[in-house]
C-alpha cells in the first residue's frame, strides 16, 4: 500500500495537486496531501518529525513558547535552524548565510481535530522571505485519514533580482516540501506500522514506541557525530600531512 500521496497532475509526480500564482508581492504556491493516518497519529508524530533520513538540513529544534489557551488549544512556538544554500549566480549579488533560523507557530484544536502551522524565516529577509501555512484536518469523509493543505508565499526585494530569486525560492520550496513530506511519512510509518507490516510493534503501547523512536534517532545522531569527527581528522591530516592522529596523542 502506498503510504501517503499527493493529488493531481504534476509532471514529475502524476499525483500532485499544486497551483502557482505570481503577484506583485512575490509568488504563491499551494499544494495538498492526504495521509493514511488518523488526526491524533499525525499530531503525535508532528512533534517527533526530526531527525529523519530526509532531514539532514535541519540542524536544531527548540521549543521557545508553549501554553494552553482558555479554550484548550495547544499553542507552541519552535525555533529551528536549517542549512541554507543559495545558487552560485546569486552569490555574486548577495551574501548567503550558511544557516538560517525559522520560527514555526502551531495551534492544535482538539474540538475541530485540526492543526494550523505558520512558518517564517528570521533574518536574511531582505534577500528572501518564505512564509508557509499548513492546515491539517481530520477528513469528514474518512476519519482514518487526515488532509493537509499548504500555502506558501515567497518574496524578494533585491533590486533587479527579485524575480529570479523568487523563482529559485519557489523551486527550492517545492523540493523541500517533498523532503519534509517523505520525512514525516517515514516517522509515521515507524510509529504506527499497520498490523500486517509489523504485528509486534503495532501491539506495543504508544509510549514505548515513542521511546524506541527516540533511541533510534540517538543512534542516527551519534553516527552523524562520529562521521563529522572522522571528517575533521581526515581534513586535519590533509592540512598537516606530517601529523597523523596516532602521532598526535600528546596534544589531544
Amino acid at each position: 500500500m502506498t503510504k501517503g500521496w499527493f493529488f493531481g497532475g504534476g509532471k514529475e509526480d502524476s499525483s500532485t495537486v499544486t497551483s502557482h500564482e505570481s503577484h506583485a508581492a512575490g509568488k504563491v504556491h499551494s499544494s495538498a496531501a492526504i495521509f493514511p493516518y488518523t488526526w491524533d497519529q499525525i499530531f503525535v508524530a508532528f512533534w517527533l518529525r526530526y531527525p529523519n533520513p530526509y532531514s539532514h538540513h535541519v540542524l536544531s529544534e527548540d521549543v521557545v513558547e508553549r501554553h494552553l489557551t482558555t479554550d484548550n488549544k495547544l499553542v507552541t512556538k519552535r525555533l529551528l535552524s536549517k542549512t541554507s544554500r543559495i545558487p552560485h549566480w546569486a552569490e555574486r549579488f548577495v551574501q548567503g548565510p550558511a544557516m538560517v533560523f525559522v520560527v514555526e507557530e502551531s495551534v492544535i484544536d482538539l474540538a475541530t481535530r485540526s492543526m494550523m502551522t505558520y512558518t517564517r524565516n528570521l533574518g536574511y529577509k531582505k534577500v528572501m522571505t518564505v512564509d508557509e501555512k499548513c492546515w491539517y484536518r481530520s477528513r469528514l469523509q474518512d476519519a482514518s485519514t487526515t488532509e493537509l493543505v499548504r500555502t506558501a508565499r515567497i518574496e524578494s526585494h533585491v533590486f533587479g533580482f527579485a524575480k529570479p530569486i523568487q523563482t529559485f525560492g519557489i523551486e527550492r520550496y517545492k523540493r523541500n516540501t517533498g523532503r519534509t513530506h517523505s520525512g514525516f511519512l517515514h516517522v509515521l510509518a515507524d510509529l504506527f506500522p499497520s498490523a500486517e507490516e509489523n504485528q509486534e510493534i503495532a501491539q506495543e503501547p504508544l509510549a514505548k514506541r515513542i521511546a524506541a523512536l527516540g533511541e533510534r534517532a540517538d543512534a542516527v545522531r551519534e553516527a552523524a557525530r562520529r562521521a563529522r569527527e572522522m571528517a575533521k581528522i581526515k581534513t586535519s591530516d590533509f592540512l598537516h600531512t606530517s601529523r597523523t592522529p596516532s602521532s598526535d596523542n600528546s596534544s589531544a
Partner: peptide, 18 residues
C-alpha cells in the same frame, strides 16, 4: 503571526480535487 493581522496567507485554499 498566526491568527494576527500580520498573517500574510489567510486560510489555505482546499483544492476541489481533494
Amino acid at each position: 503571526v498566526l491568527g494576527s493581522e500580520e498573517d500574510k496567507l489567510g486560510e489555505p485554499k482546499r483544492p476541489e480535487k481533494l
